[in-house]
């Protein structure tokens, strides 16, 4: 049994596997299958200042090697989260990443003011939602630096900034977040994508475009994690299409300290636990005693 503990900004994770924001709600549903205390962490559904109903119409469709979705941040709002969901999650013996999203800086500020009154240890600042209107703040260095520095001044909680892949150079955006005081960056959010129904000539989603997730995006995410981790000094959390332990380990070799997994859970509700087991098995079989040894151990040509 290899040592699986990793650390981000003083938060100890019993293993590097976190269930990513959006697939897991606030943990209650999948608890029927998964003992949350076995997970490194849980990233909550992206939560906004007020209740949001999300996008009308169809919100998911399978495409080759993955799926497109367009939820539009349906959530009950930060007050409901703080009152009804956060205390429950904090009692589960896992790290809770409170994922928050706003449509402008004022909304992020108002949410963080409320979270400051709680014991939530980690904020995952979602500046990259692919399925709400308008360009997210996280698609420019200036926008990223501005929102990160404003939130940084408000809180001593661990601040992870979640980045969009829908940019020219994600490592530059990560550097902007680092310069503004982020404790870590998580990447990637989903990739803008589209489906059209031929008969009606209508885009499948009412929002016209949706977001691509699932196993197809793993190689893209891995490349972006590697590019980013080789530039920033803060920890990187790798996200995107991870479906097994070897892929999770590739993310870590590329430089990720933690790995978030998402869509694989739809097929297999036990996927997060299996990924942890598979990581451990590979480490044992390859004589690695401590998983920290492999973080960033890639040997580029």
């Amino acid at each position: 049994m290899a040592e699986l503990k990793v650390n981000i900004n003083g938060n100890e994770f019993k293993n590097p596997v976190i269930v990513s924001s959006g697939v897991f709600g606030y943990g209650r549903e999948y608890e029927e299958f998964v003992d949350l205390s076995k997970l490194g962490g849980v990233a909550t559904k992206g939560t906004t200042l007020y209740r949001r109903d999300g996008n009308p119409g169809k919100r998911i469709v399978e495409v080759p090697s993955g799926l497109l979705f367009s939820v539009g941040l349906q959530n009950p709002g930060i007050d409901y989260y703080i009152e009804n969901e956060l205390p429950n999650l904090l009692s589960k013996g896992t790290n809770v990443l409170s994922n928050i999203a706003g449509s402008d800086i004022d909304e992020y500020v108002a949410i963080v003011e409320k979270l400051e009154e709680t014991d939530a240890p980690i904020i995952e600042l979602n500046i990259s939602c692919p399925n709400t209107s308008g360009a997210p703040l996280g698609t420019s260095c200036a926008g990223t630096e501005k929102i990160t520095s404003i939130i940084r001044k408000m809180t001593k909680k661990t601040l992870i900034v979640k980045l969009s892949p829908n940019v020219g150079d994600i490592a530059e955006i990560a550097l902007a977040a680092e310069a503004a005081g982020a404790d870590a960056v998580s990447l990637i959010n989903s990739i803008h994508a589209m489906k059209i129904e031929l008969g009606s000539r209508r885009p499948f989603f009412h929002n016209n475009v949706g977001a691509y997730s699932g196993e197809a995006i793993f190689p893209i995410a891995l490349r972006m994690v590697w590019e980013t981790a080789s530039k920033v000094k803060i920890p990187v959390l790798g996200i995107g299409g991870v479906t097994n332990g070897e892929e999770a380990l590739q993310m870590m070799v590329a430089g990720a300290t933690c790995v978030e997994m998402g869509c694989a859970i739809f097929r297999d509700p036990y996927a997060p636990l299996k990924i942890i087991e598979q990581m451990n098995e590979w480490l044992d079989n390859n004589g690695v005693k401590d998983i920290n040894e492999i973080i960033g151990s890639v040997k580029p040509w």
Binding site: G25, Y30, V71
Partner: peptide, 30 residues
């Protein structure tokens, strides 16, 4: 409705339901 997780976590299979005097996107699966 097009469905994802099937247990109410991913919130994709929305239908518009009027309950307690308000419209909500509830979910077909849960």
């Amino acid at each position: 409705q097009h469905m994802g997780c099937g247990i109410g976590a991913c919130l994709v299979c929305a239908v518009n339901i009027r309950r307690d005097g308000e419209e909500h996107f509830l979910h077909v699966c849960k």
